[in-house]
Simulated assay, not measured.
Amino acid sequence: MTQPHDLHGAARAPHDETRQRILMCAPDDFDVRYVINPWMEHQIGRTTPSLAREQWRNLRALVAQSAEVEQVTPAAGLPDMVFTANAGFVLGAIAVVSRFRAEQRRPEEPLFRAFFEAQGYDVAPWPEPIPFEGAGDALIDRGADVVWCGYGMRSAAEAPAALERIIGRRVIGLRLVDPRFYHLDTCFCPLARGWLMYYPPAFDDASRAAIEKIVPREKRMEIDEADAMRFACNAIDLDASVAMNDASPQLQKRLRDAGFAPALAPLSEFMKAGGSAKCLTLKLSER
C-alpha cells in the first residue's frame, strides 16, 4: 500500500490514531518586521534567531512526548508563518483556511490551503470579506459540544455564525476587549475533562456570562493579570500535561490540583511577536 505524502513528496508514516496530531512550522525566517499587535511594539529586529530556534526545538520535543508532530515548510519572507495556530481551523475532515485581517499575513493563506489539500482535508469555502484567524480564535471545548470563537480584534463579529454554518456544531462568540489579548487563545484555554483556564477581564460582560453558563464554576480556572501577561493561557492541552511558556507557582499548583502536569517551555523570543506555545501549534486531530 502506498504511504501518504507531504507537500514535497516525501513518504510519511501512517498516523497513530491514539495520539493527537499537531502542526508546527520551523522558525527559519522568524523575526519581528512589522507591528500588528501591541506585543510587537518596539521589537522590530530585536529577536535572537539562534535562541528562537532553540526555544522552538524544545517546545517541539515537549509536544512530541504526547502527540504526533507534523511540519509545514516555512516560506521566506513570512516571519509569522511559524504561528501555525493561525493557519486555519480543523474539525474532523473539515479545514477552514484563515482569512487574515493584516495584509502582511495574507500570503500565508495559499500555502496553508495547499497543505490542507495535500493532507486530504475537505477545505471549506469561507466568505471573502469576513476576517477569521483560525485556531487563534476558534477553540474546541473539551467538555461541552461547542466551539468558542473570539472576535473583535482579528476575527470579525460575523465569524462565529459563519463558522457554525460550515462545521454544523454550536459556535459561541466571545468578544475580546483588551488589545493585549487580540486572539482568543491568548486568554482562553479549554482543557481536558471540561476544565477551562481563562482571563475574565479580556472579555465583555456578555461573553463572561456565556462562559459561566456553559462551564461549571468548579471547572473554571480564572487567572490573574500577571499570569495572563506570561501568556499562561496560550498553552497546549495535551490531555494530562499542559505545555506553556510560564506560570506562577500558584497557577502551577492549581493545575496540578486539577490533575494536570504543567510543563514549562520558555518562549521569550516568540513573545516579542505576541505568540507563545499555543500560537506555535495547530491541532489537526484530538483523541
Rank of each mutant, 00 (worst) to 15 (best):
D145S: 04
Y34Q: 03
V72L: 07
F30M: 04
A102I: 03
P266C: 06
D80E: 13
D28C: 02
Q65E: 15
T281D: 10
R165A: 15
P201N: 11
F30N: 03
A258T: 08
V96T: 04
M1R: 15
D145P: 01
D205C: 08
R175L: 12
S241I: 13
L111Q: 06
N86R: 04
P27D: 02
D28Q: 03
E70A: 14
P129H: 03
P49I: 01
S268W: 05
Y182V: 04
M81I: 00
E17R: 15
K219Q: 14
V97N: 09
V177H: 09
A258D: 08
D237L: 03
R105P: 08
T2P: 13
Y182N: 10
E109K: 11
T2V: 12
L284G: 01
I167E: 05
F231Y: 08
P14L: 13
L280E: 03
S276I: 02
V242E: 01
I36Q: 00
C149Q: 07
P79M: 06
D246C: 09
P127Q: 07
S155Q: 04
T73A: 14
I214D: 01
F83T: 00
D204Q: 11
R46M: 14
D237E: 08
F89I: 03
V147F: 10
R53I: 01
P129R: 03
Y121A: 08
E70Y: 12
L91F: 04
F188V: 00
C187H: 07
Y34K: 02
A76V: 11
Q3L: 15
V146G: 01
K213M: 11
S285G: 15
V146A: 01
A10N: 15
E17D: 15
A261S: 13
A210T: 02
T48S: 10
E158L: 14
Q43Y: 01
L111Y: 03
R57F: 08
C189Y: 01
P110W: 07
Y151S: 07
T48I: 12
H42L: 06
A11R: 10
D141E: 02
D204W: 05
R256K: 15
S155L: 03
A10L: 14
D224R: 10
T18L: 09
L282G: 08
C149N: 05
I214Y: 05
V90T: 01
Y151W: 15
M221S: 02
R60T: 10
A13E: 11
S268K: 08
D145K: 06
F188C: 00
F112P: 02
P190C: 05
L51F: 04
G275E: 10
S207T: 09
A202R: 02
D122P: 06
K278V: 00
C189V: 00
A263P: 06
V146S: 00
S285V: 07
E103M: 09
H5D: 09
I172W: 01
G9H: 11
I166F: 09
V63A: 10
E225L: 15
A161Y: 07
H42C: 08
G9E: 12
K253E: 15
L284Y: 06
